[in-house]
Simulated assay, not measured.
Amino acid sequence: MLDQLWNSWGASVIGPLHVKAGIPNQDSWMARRYKWGNVVVVSDGLGSKAHSDHGSKAACLAVFEAAKSYQNTPDANIVDILRLIHANWLVKIAPYSSTDCSATCLFAIQIEGIITLGRLGDGMIAALGETGENHLILSDNKQASFSNYTNSLQQEFKPDQWETATIESTACNAVVLCTDGISDDLLPEKQMTFAQELYSTYADLESEEIKRDLKRWLNEWPVPGHSDDKTIACLFKKGGSQ
């Protein structure tokens, strides 16, 4: 089965600013393997929101629930899935209000031969193809943007704010997802190289070794003055070409 080819890793570290302020890590990530496929999600709770850490965890769980429904309804289109993620999130943030829990949401859902990608708000998704022609990036070029507004899960469902893509899993080696604590520090032209190097570094390592090394370099982030939480996750094909 195709899903047996895939595995995942990820890590999240709290930003120096939040450590000083005594604020919890507002990022979340989760990855799960099911009999029918794999799901990987990262989410960044908006810093100005009182319960954004709760909102980001709810976003990850909301995607899992939607993916389970998705694999049972093959005729569903992507907007149906996004609407379901949004509805699930509103349920899972209880007892808090949506205005206190706003969070971004980036996901990869692999079901049989298709990987569905979705991105709401800041952060980056990089899909590494078997060849350069199959590479795909979903991200903002922050260097060209002066807006501080971040799209996020909130009370109203706004499908036009989502960026989505579907790719054939046979043409893909890995999907790297990260919050803006990482992607904002990467030049746009370096984003794919960054993802490729990560995949090459960790493709053949054991999960515990990967987790230790990820935490180490996230905590030693080399950009001066960085302050944000940092979260990264990867869905990768075992034994894929490097």
Rank of each mutant, 00 (worst) to 15 (best):
4 Q>N: 04
9 W>F: 15
11 A>D: 04
14 I>W: 00
14 I>R: 08
17 L>N: 14
18 H>M: 09
18 H>L: 11
19 V>L: 13
21 A>N: 11
24 P>R: 13
30 M>G: 02
33 R>Y: 05
34 Y>R: 06
34 Y>S: 01
35 K>P: 10
39 V>A: 06
40 V>H: 01
40 V>L: 06
43 S>R: 02
46 L>D: 04
49 K>N: 14
52 S>K: 09
54 H>F: 12
55 G>L: 08
57 K>L: 11
60 C>I: 03
67 A>K: 02
67 A>F: 07
68 K>M: 14
69 S>Y: 10
72 N>I: 08
73 T>Y: 10
73 T>A: 12
76 A>I: 08
78 I>K: 11
79 V>S: 14
83 R>E: 14
83 R>L: 09
86 H>Q: 15
93 I>V: 12
94 A>D: 10
94 A>Y: 11
95 P>V: 07
95 P>C: 07
97 S>T: 14
104 T>R: 12
105 C>Y: 07
109 I>G: 04
112 E>R: 15
113 G>N: 15
116 T>N: 10
116 T>P: 06
116 T>D: 10
116 T>W: 03
119 R>M: 10
121 G>S: 11
122 D>C: 03
123 G>V: 08
123 G>M: 06
126 A>Y: 00
127 A>N: 01
128 L>I: 15
130 E>P: 01
131 T>S: 09
138 L>A: 01
141 N>H: 10
146 F>T: 12
150 T>V: 15
151 N>Y: 09
152 S>G: 14
152 S>H: 14
153 L>K: 07
154 Q>T: 15
155 Q>A: 13
155 Q>G: 11
156 E>N: 12
158 K>F: 04
159 P>F: 07
161 Q>C: 09
161 Q>P: 00
163 E>D: 10
164 T>W: 07
170 T>N: 05
172 C>D: 01
174 A>M: 00
175 V>Y: 01
176 V>L: 10
179 T>A: 07
179 T>H: 05
180 D>S: 04
182 I>A: 01
183 S>A: 06
184 D>V: 03
185 D>W: 03
187 L>E: 08
189 E>K: 11
195 A>L: 02
198 L>V: 00
206 E>K: 10
206 E>Q: 13
206 E>M: 08
207 S>E: 12
208 E>I: 08
209 E>I: 09
212 R>T: 11
215 K>H: 08
219 N>K: 15
221 W>S: 08
224 P>L: 03
227 S>Q: 10
227 S>I: 04
228 D>V: 06
229 D>I: 12
231 T>E: 02
231 T>L: 06
232 I>C: 00
233 A>Y: 04
234 C>Y: 03
237 K>Y: 00
238 K>H: 04
239 G>D: 10
